[in-house]
Design a protein around this nucleic acid. Structure first.
Lengths: 190, 190
DNA sequence: TTTATTTGCTAACAAACGTTAGGTTGCTTA
DNA sequence: TAAGCAACCTAACGTTTGTTAGCAAATAAA
């Protein structure tokens, strides 16, 4: 190992994440990953237990990041539209901090097998519900006006998570943050 | 063939579309498709030439539908915000008219091989440019106010195309149409 | 009735898949 | 110096993949 090289395990996970993003999980072989790292496929198993373990790692690490973000926001003591704005910004932060992992998190989780699959879906639901309750609170306080909350939550999350598909050709993270937070706030305001 | 059954070729394509949506193209085998139709894998080849041909068919049929929609809108002679609203509604129409095919169109096109892959990307670009020029026109006329057009186009299309992920638990198409058209118009208006 | 055509079958193919076994090398610690 | 361990290798495994060949039955056209 030469100067300041990442541990092999991390390197494998990193390379795998990129490949899962660009080719998809099912279409990425262990031999693809190995070639990108510069070793043989069988050698990967000195560092990880299975292909799916890599996917599981990525999906749940990102899920945790998203959940932590919104939980922290919900515990703060500020106005509802400030809270909402913060939640959006935190979501954007998590995505831009690791675009490839976000893409995998968003597009490849269906390849998780049980019981991970169910567990993941539960986490995802929980996250959506948090967003939903934020908007509901805004509506109760008379700050937001929304005809169909489910619709708004889903449209918003789709829009946010779409970042990973086109992020290459746009704004720096801080501007992205502001742009999203403002667009949605404007759309919700009474 | 009993009363009013679909031709086998269409049936295969229909079943394949559903499977491509739920499992992904790469993770769907010809044997999966065959089993869902109720025949043997080899029998599929009496009706289609290859697995990829099915994907190609779906992707380009949907691409054509989207392009036709926006081209017709752009040729009409109405105000810019009416045009924009129509474009959004047509897009939603195309998606809701075949959710499974839309999901495949949006998520699985990367598995097309050359030269189809390049051709598809070109079409996609063209579609985005049409939306972009609609917004640009609105800005020039002083009807819309937008800080970063690329951002808005991408955020909007991501949001629209996200429909296929959550469509099960919401609005009927007509309401969906209106909801989207209004949300975006509200967000763009000066 | 004969002839084509369509639609399906079984059997098999070569290639690619995730993964395991078992061995070699070289560094680290006792 | 010896022992232990981490990181890599080659070879191979059993399975699954998309697809082809060749044949049988049913249906439609002559």
């Amino acid at each position: 190992m030469t100067v300041a090289t990442k541990p092999r395990k991390e390197q494998i996970e990193h390379v795998a994440t990129d490949l899962f993003k660009s080719k998809g999980y099912a279409a990425t072989s262990m031999r693809d990953i190995a070639a990108a790292v510069g070793i043989e496929a069988a050698s990967i198993y000195s560092h990880i237990n299975s292909k799916e373990q890599i996917l599981t790692g990525i999906c749940f690490r990102m899920a945790r990041a998203f959940m932590t973000g919104i939980e922290e926001v919900m515990q703060t003591n500020t106005s509802i539209d400030e809270k909402f704005k913060m939640a959006v910004m935190r979501h954007v932060d998590v995505i831009t901090s690791d675009i490839a992992a976000s893409a995998v998190f968003w597009n490849e989780w269906r390849h998780l097998s049980e019981p991970m699959h169910s567990e993941f879906v539960t986490l995802q639901r929980k996250y959506e519900l948090s967003f939903r309750s934020l908007i509901e609170q805004g509506v109760e306080e008379g700050v937001f006006e929304v005809s169909n909350i489910s619709f708004v939550v889903m449209a918003m999350l789709s829009s946010l998570n779409g970042i990973q598909k086109w992020h290459s050709y746009t704004l720096p993270p801080e501007e992205l943050n502001e742009a999203f937070a403002n667009i949605f706030l404007k759309g919700l305001k009474k």
